[in-house]
């Protein structure tokens, strides 16, 4: 009887020590699911989801606090990928969500007064300029999040839709007549 007790508690102690050790040694920093969700999000950093960026939104989804249909720039394709990853049902966008074509911000340099409010708002540092100096958008890194538009006191920022150019043109999905099935 005593032997059995000793053996069992011995095993329990050893296993407990192993588990305790590996919990410290192989500790995972952060939630790996957050990284996977973050990789699907389009990184526009627009905050339309109600969180201050894509990463915080990913964290909220991983924690089960946010729905997967809150990211308009990601499109329905994005929702589908998130649903696949998380093993949940696809959920269409709620009412009032408008998907806009891709755009970049444009500063009318004649109107800019150099207040730096937009540089503070830009989540990806895509605006160059200093206090009382003219500002300008670094277009290749602008994500088109529109966060700079509202803070501008002189309304000199507008969104310019990126038009299809020869270099960005895509071949369309083939459409051709099919023979009727008899």
């Amino acid at each position: 009887m005593l032997t059995a007790l000793l053996v069992m508690s011995g095993i329990a102690l050893v296993l407990g020590a192993v588990l305790g050790f590996s919990a410290i040694k192989f500790r995972v920093e952060g939630n790996p699911l957050v990284d996977k969700i973050d990789a699907i999000l389009p990184q526009i950093q627009c905050g339309q989801c109600g969180y201050p960026g894509c990463r915080p939104y990913a964290e909220a989804i991983a924690a089960g606090e946010a729905d997967i249909n809150r990211c308009p720039p990601g499109g329905e394709e994005g929702i589908r990928k998130l649903a696949d990853l998380l093993g949940v049902e696809f959920k269409p966008f709620g009412g009032g969500t408008v998907q806009k074509p891709k755009a970049v911000a444009f500063i009318d340099e004649n109107l800019c007064i150099g207040c730096t409010l937009c540089t503070q708002a830009c989540p990806v540092d895509a605006i160059a300029g200093a206090a009382k100096q003219m500002h300008t958008i670094i277009a290749p890194v602008c994500t088109g999040c529109e966060l700079c538009v509202a803070p501008c006191p002189v309304n000199c920022i507008s969104m310019v839709v990126i038009e299809e150019k020869i270099t960005t043109w895509k071949w369309k999905y083939p459409v051709y007549p099919l023979a009727p099935v008899k």
């Binding site: 990184q43 894509c54 990463r55 890194v141 895509k170």
Partner: peptide, 25 residues
Amino acid sequence: RFAKSEIRALEHEQTAADLARERYE
């Protein structure tokens, strides 16, 4: 041709997203 240009566009979008993530972080 359709698949190739879609893949190229997706890759382009992915690099843009990676750049944005890096700059945001």
